[in-house]
Amino acid sequence: MFEQLKKNLEEFGFPVLPDEKTGELQWIDVRELKIRYIISINNIKPFFDGLRNGKLITTKCKKCGELYFPPQKDCPKCKMSEMEWVEIKREGTLETLTVIFVRPPSFGVYDPYTVAIAKLDDGPRILAWLRGDPRQVRPGQRVRVEVSRRKEGYLMYELVPI
């Protein structure tokens, strides 16, 4: 497509192409947009320290005892922001799963991957990739949370059947 576009640009003076199927004339944008977000993790730093040590650390409200995962700065129930960081047990039960065959381009380095949700024994649910053959597991399967290094080079948790 880009070869033809270049040719048309030179010959006709415009970045135009007829649509492949219908022949209807299209202007092919010469501006390209790339987006990379910058997201604050300033209030959940201990979570990442935990992952570095292979642990799942999250926030618990000091007043009402509510356990939050993913970790968060504020307790909306008490309208308080005094949280303690606690380690949660890294075991639970699989509730559902899917295998992502058609991947977003930004996940193009990966083969189809399994995304699963498990309910941890301590209460919170967790969504993560599931290691291993998805055909060998069903909801109800016991799983453990493990931290591993991703292809992108950073540490993240995943679910592993026990």
């Binding site: 997201i39 509730e95 559902t96 799963l97 899917t98 992502i100 058609v102 991947r103 977003p104 930004s106 996940f107 990966y110 991957y113 995304v115 949700i117 969504l127 993560a128 990739w129 909801p139 993240m156």
Partner: peptide, 18 residues
């Protein structure tokens, strides 16, 4: 999304499986 690459079909597929 950032960490687990969920897609729109993936979100609903989690419901379909369950």
């Amino acid at each position: 999304f950032e960490n687990f690459g969920l897609t729109f079909p993936g979100y609903y597929a989690l419901h379909g499986t369950a």
